[in-house]
Design a binder for these strands. Structure first.
Length: 480
RNA sequence: GCACCCAUCGACUAGAGGCCUAGGUCGUCACCCUUUCACGGUGAAAACACGGGUUCGAAUCCCGUUGGGUGUACCA
């Protein structure tokens, strides 16, 4: 690897949301730059007018910021190599295309999409490999002039050598050799005047002085075209590092329809950026030891491209949940309360009373994978009176033993001090000693009286959160 | 079809010729803790795709097979 300080970039298309695979690519670029004291650039690749989504670029930047990935140069940040939005760089691409044309390294193609499609179909029917047949490659200058004078639309294609081979080096995969005759004459400039990814990417990476192209493996098959372009321009190509893909459970490329793929989806479900970043960082990379919990800074300390694996990684939400649970319980009480606030309010808790909100949420911190998990535990806090659902439950609480337990509990609960889960549990112990009732016969009546349910949080927690007054009130209600 | 990439437990992975009777984590199961649920603790089941080489010795190197993936657009 070179010793120069790296300049890397994350270059998403503004077509909607940030894909979790994109997040990981962005993260690896970010970590690589941080690790080596380099620069990360955000570049918006909006050369496809058809797929462009208004506001998507801003949303992308916002989501990246949420994830804690901060760039050094970019559309909103500025920098010496702008503009950082490709649609604002049209003249630059045009100039470079002109140069390729002048040097006979590219040619104009007047084939219409219909003609190309027909040709493709014919090739498939004849069981030949579909590829551009190169008919416009042979047009003479006169012909080209006439068609241009007629105002015929055209694209510009890369003039790939007919024979020979090309070798490229990938930091993750090693040396790769490709025969020229398997490479199509790629369109570089579309008939609408916008460049394709291949051209824009190479030109921008060069002009922005990118040293390492770290991107998804789906780009590996087109990398030879990019390398050829660098050669045609007479530029040194950057280092390439093609990351293994993120996969669905069936090992196909991670896609919508088989689960959530948008970072925004996970954010909305209450996944913490720390957890998502930590999880995604370990999908295709590992530190070489058994550590799994990493802060962003720790990742930046340890990250290295040569510990990136080659095989694709399945995105397993179960493990993500585990990470989230770890981070959730480590959160300061105020922040956890904040995240749980909607469900607290739904359960009738006044979240403006921050002490109360924190008391409730911290009681359940260990129960949560995502904040919404708190909801089912909050039922007993409802102000509605307890109504037992079954005859069995009513019978359980009407039993003579149960009456004695409730009475003894009420008496002692009136004056223990302070009122918290420990003292309450100790108090229940003494109720057991006093009444001689134990096990289910002891706890079930209390649980039913206080929460109306057979299952739920620890009785100490229930009584503590209910508070002494409401606890006594519920016991009284059950004793009739 | 063709090109390229890849191949260790269900999942993420450690492993760069002997340390491997293959380790860790998630998940699963069992037991313990516990009135219950969760947490936590302990433990278990669970993998080197296959076939040839090379070597005293292969999960590790080479070749082939098989399997999977990506690409094959005037999308990125």
């Amino acid at each position: 690897m070179s010793t120069i300080t790296p300049r890397v970039r994350f270059a998403p298309s503004p077509t909607g949301y940030l894909h979790v695979g994109g997040l990981r690519t962005a993260l690896y670029n970010y970590l690589f730059a941080r690790r080596h004291g380099g620069t990360v650039i955000l570049r918006i690749e909006d050369t496809d007018r058809g797929r462009y989504v208004e506001g998507a670029a801003e949303a992308l930047a916002e989501t990246l910021a949420w994830a804690g990935l901060h760039f050094d140069e970019g559309p909103a940040l500025g920098g010496a190599h702008g503009p950082y939005v490709q649609s604002e760089r049209s003249e630059i691409y045009a100039a470079h295309v002109a140069r390729l044309l002048a040097e006979d390294k590219a040619y104009r193609c007047f084939c219409t999409p219909e003609e190309l499609e027909a040709s493709r179909q014919r090739q498939i029917a004849e069981k030949r490999d579909p590829a551009y047949d190169g008919r416009c490659r042979r047009l003479d200058a006169e012909d080209i002039q006439r068609r241009m004078a007629d105002g015929l639309p055209f694209t510009v294609r890369l003039k790939v050598p007919r024979m020979g081979q090309l070798q490229l080096r990938d930091l993750i995969r090693g040396d790769i050799v490709v025969q020229y005759d398997t490479i199509d004459d790629q369109v570089l400039l579309k008939s609408d005047g916008f460049p394709t990814y291949h051209l824009a990417n190479v030109v921008d990476d060069h002009l922005m002085e990118i040293t390492h192209v770290i991107r998804g493996e789906e780009w590996l098959p087109s990398t030879p075209k990019h390398v050829l372009l660098y050669e045609f321009f007479g530029w040194d190509a950057p280092e390439f590092a093609h990351l293994p893909l993120l996969l669905n459970a069936d090992r196909s490329k991670l896609s919508k329809r088989q689960g959530d793929v948008a970072v925004e989806d996970y954010r909305a479900k209450g996944f913490l950026p720390e957890a998502l970043v930590n999880f995604v960082a370990l999908l295709g990379w590992n530190p070489g030891d058994d550590r799994e919990l990493f802060s962003r800074d720790e990742l930046a300390q340890s990250f290295s491209l040569d510990r990136v694996s080659k095989a694709g990684a399945v995105f397993d939400v179960e493990k993500l949940k585990w990470f989230n649970a770890q981070y959730l319980r480590a959160l300061p009480p105020a922040r956890l309360a904040d995240l749980c606030a909607p469900w607290l309010r739904a359960a009738g808790i006044d979240t403006d009373d921050t002490a109360r909100a924190m008391q409730v949420t911290t009681a359940f911190a260990n129960y949560l994978e995502v904040p919404a998990d708190i909801a089912p535990h909050l039922g007993f806090l409802s102000p509605a009176p307890i109504v037992l659902a079954s005859d069995a439950e009513r019978a359980a609480i009407a039993a003579p033993e149960a009456r004695r337990v409730l009475t003894a509990f009420a008496t002692r609960a009136a004056d223990i001090e302070p009122w918290n889960r420990e003292t309450i549990k100790a108090m229940i112990k003494s109720v057991q000693t006093e009444t001689g009732v134990k096990g289910k016969a002891l706890f079930l009546p209390l649980r039913l009286a206080l929460s109306g349910a057979e299952h739920g949080p620890d009785l100490g927690i229930i009584a503590e959160l209910l508070g002494r007054a409401r606890t006594l009130e519920r016991i009284r209600a059950m004793r009739g």
